[in-house]
């Protein structure tokens, strides 16, 4: 087995008296899609925020390429190649696709004493990268607000990949999307994985996870319930782990197995 791109060991995070994470471990290998599953309140968000440098863990260690590190800010995590795509906050809708794509890393062109954005390059690269992901933009100046939810996620993913992300964390990228958009995003995840990038796919939808996942980790009440490889676990078992067992079994009885 190769060295994981990123490994988190026994992460604990306390907010005052609340223990949000009580020992969570997870590793991501190159070209792997690791699904992080869990119901609302299981600690998924806290965990990925720890991974992306928003929170620093109370206990536990983070290893990037086998070396122990700590992230003081999101900038540190980004510099280490860990990119996070948040569901609602991926893009700024009022701004153009190009402006969003290059946000924070604008290519510059020197004119006399002034540094201007090199819009020629920026637009060209944006169009090319979007075409690679299978989205044909009308023009790079199009506002992101005119794109569909799935397209916005794809722009955010394309951006992360273009800027050399080694690990891509996707926070519930499919939860607000329709069927067609969801399959587009899942197809994009597959493309990204084939480039050798490690993907962490957060979801509470077992079907979406099963479609692309190589490994599955289930979080429940701030703890890891274990990691399983593809083929070792059935969707039903995953569903049960997520909901914590018994209650769902009862529910499922009354709903006739539709959940």
């Amino acid at each position: 087995m190769t060295t994981p791109l990123i490994e988190l060991r026994d992460i604990e995070k306390h907010f005052g008296a609340v223990i949000a994470l009580a020992g969570v471990s997870l590793s991501v290998h190159p070209g792997e899609c690791h699904c992080l599953l869990g119901d609302n309140g299981a600690g998924k968000s806290t965990f990925i925020k720890t991974m992306s440098g928003v929170h620093s863990p109370t206990k536990g260690s983070i290893l990037v390429d086998g070396a122990e590190t700590s992230f003081a800010s999101t900038r540190d995590a980004i510099d280490a190649g860990i990119a996070t795509v948040y569901q609602d906050l991926a893009m700024i809708p009022l701004m153009s696709v190009t402006r969003n794509f290059w946000m924070g890393r604008e290519p510059k062109k020197r004119v006399g004493p002034f540094n201007f954005i090199d819009f020629g390059t920026a637009n060209q690269v944006t169009m090319d990268e979007m075409a690679k992901m299978g989205i044909r933009l009308r023009e790079p100046n199009q506002a992101v607000g005119t794109l569909s939810g799935g397209e916005r996620q794809t722009v955010a993913i394309a951006r992360a990949v273009h800027f050399g992300a080694k690990v891509l964390i996707l926070d519930e990228p499919t939860s607000a999307l329709g069927v067609r958009q969801t399959s587009n995003v899942l197809a994009t995840i597959d493309k990204v994985r084939k480039k050798g990038i490690g993907v962490v796919f957060i979801s509470h939808n077992v079907r979406h996870a099963m479609a692309v996942g190589d490994r599955f980790t289930v979080l429940n009440r701030g703890q890891t319930l274990g990691t399983a490889k593809r083929g070792e676990i059935s969707p039903e078992e995953l569903q049960e782990l997520m909901a914590g067992g018994q209650e769902l079994a009862e529910l499922e009885g009354s709903l006739g197995g539709t959940v």
């Binding site: 299978g134 569909s148 799935g150 794809t154 329709g178 069927v179 067609r180 958009q181 969801t182 939808n205």
Partner: peptide
């Protein structure tokens, strides 16, 4: 999953 209108991207 919201299985409503499919928007072809």
């Amino acid at each position: 999953m919201t299985a409503d209108k499919a928007e072809p991207a």
